[in-house]
Design a binder for these strands. Structure first.
Lengths: 151, 151
DNA sequence: AGCTCAAGTTCCTTAAGGGAACCCTGAGTG
DNA sequence: CACTCAGGGTTCCCTTAAGGAACTTGAGCT
C-alpha cells in the first residue's frame, strides 16, 4: 500500500485532518491518551496494536503537535499528553462516539460517559449554530463553495 | 497489511464507527456524496482514487447503510445518496472540518461554507451540552467508565 | 555483575492500495 | 442490425504498509 497522501487533494479541511489522524489506530490512540492511558506499554496493551505501528503513530502525532512526549521518571520513561491542538481534536471523537452510541449500540451501552464540568451532569454533546444557537446538523445546512474551493 | 478489525476491541463506539468509515478515503467519499458528487465517475475523478478501492468503499458504505445505490437512468447507471444514518455521520465531518479550518488553515480559507437553514447565515458548528446548553468541549468534561466498559 | 522493566527497533510475512487495462450492459445512430 | 459510446465496474500485477515476534537499549535495583 502506497502511503495515501490526501493533502494532494484540493484544499480540503477533511483531507488535511485525515493526514493528521486518518491513519489506522490514530483516533483510538488519541482517545486512550485523553482518558489517561498515556504510556507506551499501556496503550499497546489496551489496543493490542503492534509496537512498530504504535511507535510510528505516536511519532506522527507528536510531529503534528497533537501529543507531547514527556519523561515521567529519571529512567528513560515517557508518557504522552495532549496539546491544546490535540484536545480540540477530541471534540471530533465525542461527536463520533455519539454517532456510534446511537447507530451501532451494543447491548451493554456506551463504554464511556462524559460528566460536564459546567452542570455536573452525565450528558452528551449537541451540535448548534454558532450564529443563532439553534440545532445545526448536516441536514440543516447547504454546503457552498468557499474562498478556498478548488474548482 | 492485514485488515484491521477494530471491533475486536472492547465495546467502543469509536472503534465501531471506525469499522464503518475508518478506512482510507471513506470520509472523503461521504463528503463528496453529501455535497452532490454522487456518481462513480464523478467521485473517482474528484478524489483521484483507484476505481478498485472506490468500488470496495462504496459497497462497504452501502452494506453499512450509510449510502444507498439508486439507478438514475434506464441504462445501468447509478448514483449514491446518503441515508439518514449517513447524513448523521456528516455531523462528524462538520466538526472535523472546523478543526481543520482552525488548525491547518491554508491561506485560501475554507473550501466549503455552510449556510444554516434556520437563520440563513454562513456559519459554523458549535458543541454544547445537551443538558445545560453551555459549551461542551473535550476540556470541559471528565470521561467516566460507562455500563459497557470493558475492564 | 546480573536482573528487571519501559520503550522502542529490526526483520520477515502477508494483505491492502495504486494503476492500467479490460469487460459488460443498454442506448443511440446509420 | 451492426457499430459505437459511456458509465460503472472487474482483473491483474506491483508495491508498500500492517502484524507479530524477537531483539536492543538505558537506567535503576540487589
Amino acid at each position: 500500500m502506497q502511503r495515501t497522501n490526501f493533502s494532494e487533494l484540493a484544499a480540503c479541511s477533511i483531507a488535511r485532518t485525515l493526514d493528521v489522524i486518518g491513519e489506522p489506530w490514530s483516533p483510538l490512540i488519541l482517545r486512550d491518551v485523553w482518558v489517561g492511558v498515556s504510556r507506551f506499554e499501556q496503550i499497546q496493551a489496551d489496543l493490542g496494536i503492534s509496537r512498530k505501528v504504535l511507535t510510528e503513530r505516536l511519532n506522527h502525532l507528536a510531529d503534528q503537535g497533537i501529543v507531547e512526549r514527556r519523561p515521567y521518571d529519571r529512567r528513560p520513561r515517557y508518557e504522552y499528553v495532549l496539546t491544546e491542538k490535540g484536545t480540540e481534536l477530541v471534540d471530533m471523537l465525542m461527536v463520533m462516539t455519539r454517532w456510534g452510541d446511537k447507530w451501532l449500540a451494543g447491548e451493554a451501552g456506551p463504554p464511556v460517559l462524559y460528566r460536564h464540568h459546567a452542570c455536573g451532569e452525565i450528558t452528551s454533546v449537541d451540535l448548534r449554530c454558532t450564529h443563532c444557537g439553534e440545532p445545526m446538523h448536516a441536514r440543516d445546512v447547504d454546503p457552498l463553495p468557499g474562498p478556498g474551493a478548488a474548482n
